[in-house]
Write a protein that binds this DNA or RNA. Structure first.
Lengths: 125, 125
DNA sequence: TTAAGTGCAAAGAGTTTGCAAATAA
DNA sequence: TTATTTGCAAACTCTTTGCACTTAA
C-alpha cells in the first residue's frame, strides 16, 4: 500500500460517490503531483481488493464508494437529482429474475432512472 | 422529414438496439456521405418526437430502439451478454418506489447489471 | 537488482459545438 | 427569401496505453 493508494482510499471514504476526477482533486490537495492515471489504476485495484465499488449513476463518469456503502440510487433524468433507497427493495425483483433465468442481479451497480417527485409534479403543472 | 432522417429511423427499426455508430454504418450503406453528427442530432430529434428511445446497456454507447420495443435488459458484467425480460417484472418495484418517495421509475432506460446464469455457474466451479 | 508502481504524453471512444454550404418552406 | 438542416473540423469528456523513471522488496 503506497502513499498514493492510501490517499485514494481515504478520498473515496471521505467523499462518498466521488468520480475519478473528484477523487483526483481531493488527493491533489495533499499530494499535488499525483496523476489522474494513478487514480484510475488505483480505483481499479481497490475494487479488485473489494475495498471500493463503483456505480453508474447516469451518462457521465461512474462514482466510487466504500464497499460497505451499498444502496440503490434513483437518478432523475430531468434534474439529475440522486435519491437513495435501501437495497432490500430490490430483493423481490432479484428473486423473480433469478427464478426466471438464473441471472444474479447486482442491485447497486447501476442507478435506476426516472423522474423525481418534484419533476413529476412540475410536469403535471 | 428529410431523407437522412428517414434513413436513421429505418436503421433503428431494422437494427434494434443499435448504437449511434452502428446506425451510422447502416445508413452509410445507402447514403455514404451522411455524417455521424447528423446521426446524433437525428436520434435526439426522433427521441423528442417519441419515435425512438435509448437505453444504457453498460459502459459503452447507448443503444436506440423503436419506441414500441420496451423491455428490461439484463446485462452480464462478466461476459457482456444481454437478456431481456418483460418490463412488467418491474411493476411491483416501481409501485414501491412511487409510494416511498414519489419517484417515477423509467424501467427500461437502464439495463440492470449482474451475472448471467452461465457466468454464475462458471464461478461456482 | 529485479519487480512493482508512478507520472507524463499521447491516443482512443463517444459526443458536442461552431460555422459555412446546401436545402426546404 | 428566410429558416432549417447538413457536413466538416475541431473540441471536449472520460479513459486507457506505452514508456521511461522511480521506488520498494
Amino acid at each position: 500500500m503506497t502513499p498514493q493508494r492510501q490517499l485514494v482510499l481515504d478520498a473515496v471514504r471521505h467523499l462518498q460517490h466521488a468520480t475519478p476526477e473528484q477523487t483526483c482533486q481531493w488527493v491533489q490537495r495533499t499530494a499535488p503531483t499525483v496523476n489522474i492515471t494513478t487514480i484510475y489504476r488505483t480505483l481499479d485495484l481497490l475494487e479488485e481488493l473489494g475495498l471500493v465499488r463503483h456505480t453508474h449513476l447516469g451518462h457521465g463518469a461512474p462514482t466510487y464508494s466504500p464497499d460497505e456503502h451499498e444502496h440503490i440510487h434513483l437518478v432523475c433524468h430531468h434534474c439529475g437529482a440522486v435519491e437513495t433507497v435501501p437495497h432490500e427493495v430490490l430483493d423481490d425483483l432479484a428473486g423473480t429474475i433469478r427464478d426466471r433465468s438464473g441471472f444474479e442481479l447486482d442491485s447497486g451497480h447501476v442507478g435506476l432512472s426516472g423522474a423525481c417527485a418534484d419533476c413529476t409534479e412540475r410536469r403535471r403543472g
